[in-house]
């Protein structure tokens, strides 16, 4: 069932990672990605992965959920690995078969790429698992605010994201209901040619769109009734504030970055 899709996979909690300002987490994710790309030797890779593992341990999110989240990306990961394996040239030839040449360098590179990929995904998951979607939206709005001066409608974009997050579960539920209702009239979504299947979607899409527009209309009225006039003059109940925890998080991550750079310089 559609309802089973878990969107915004936030795990509520109270670990130091949870308590970090969402802006800190967003910025540090970017820093971490830089660290990942700086790393080039076994020692620096160990540092990167160790740092991430430590963060995951502190967050108290069950490691299993990271594995589950990675499942849909396995294909992409394997593909990257294989591409690197086959198409990296080098000196030590390990396997030669037909047109396939595998070098030791290729193997090492493939392993690194896959590790980098895993670390990247886990770091992103750590952000979404420990930060509620609404906090993320707030963080984005706050970080992008300088762009508002360039004419980017930052508040409106954040509001749109917030409303979209609010209505995704509602609309999924509704899709489910409409599908069941049309199935009860004998609609068939599972068999037939591609064209027939696309045609079979009309009885779902038309009511869904009509309903979505009606909801949008009613929501707009309700928002107007609650004195919504856009971002100007608006205050926030929860103001984002950097604290001591954020300072230490920045310090630690920057230290890891420095370490990673140093290790790379020494070729480790």
């Amino acid at each position: 069932m559609l309802k089973d899709i878990t969107l915004g996979q936030y795990f509520p909690g109270n670990s130091p990672i949870h308590r970090l300002d969402p802006r800190t987490k967003l910025i540090l994710l970017v820093v971490y990605i830089v660290i990942l790309f700086v790393a080039s030797g076994p020692v620096s890779y160990c540092l990167c992965l160790g740092f991430l593992a430590a963060c995951i341990a502190v967050s108290k999110i069950p490691p299993k959920s990271f594995l589950r989240g990675m499942k849909p990306l396995i294909f992409l990961m394997c593909f990257t690995g294989i591409m690197n394996l086959f198409f990296t040239g080098g000196e030590t030839l390990l396997v030669k078969f037909w047109i396939i040449h595998i070098y030791l360098e290729g193997v090492i590179r493939a392993v690194y790429m896959i590790l980098r990929f895993i670390a990247l995904i886990c770091a992103t998951f750590l952000l979404t698992y420990t930060t509620s979607p609404i906090a993320l939206t707030d963080a984005l709005e706050s970080l992008l605010r300088p762009l508002g001066k360039l004419g980017l409608p930052v508040h409106e974009l954040a509001m749109m994201m917030c409303i979209a997050l609010r209505f995704i579960p509602t609309l999924l539920e509704e899709t489910d209901k409409i599908m069941s209702a049309q199935k009860a009239r004998g609609a068939d979504f599972e068999t037939g040619s591609l064209i027939q299947r696309v045609k079979a979607l009309i009885p779902i899409l038309v009511p869904l769109f009509i309903s979505a527009f009606r909801r949008a209309d009613e929501l707009a009225t309700a928002m107007e009734c609650r004195c919504y006039q856009g971002g100007e003059g608006r205050t926030k109940m929860k103001q984002l504030r950097y604290g001591r925890l954020d300072a230490s998080a920045f310090a630690v991550t920057l230290a890891v970055l420095a370490g990673s750079i140093a290790l790379t310089v020494f070729g480790l």
Partner: peptide
Amino acid sequence: FQNPDNQIVANV
């Protein structure tokens, strides 16, 4: 309004 779903803006 009548439909409670269509007047709640935020997801908390």
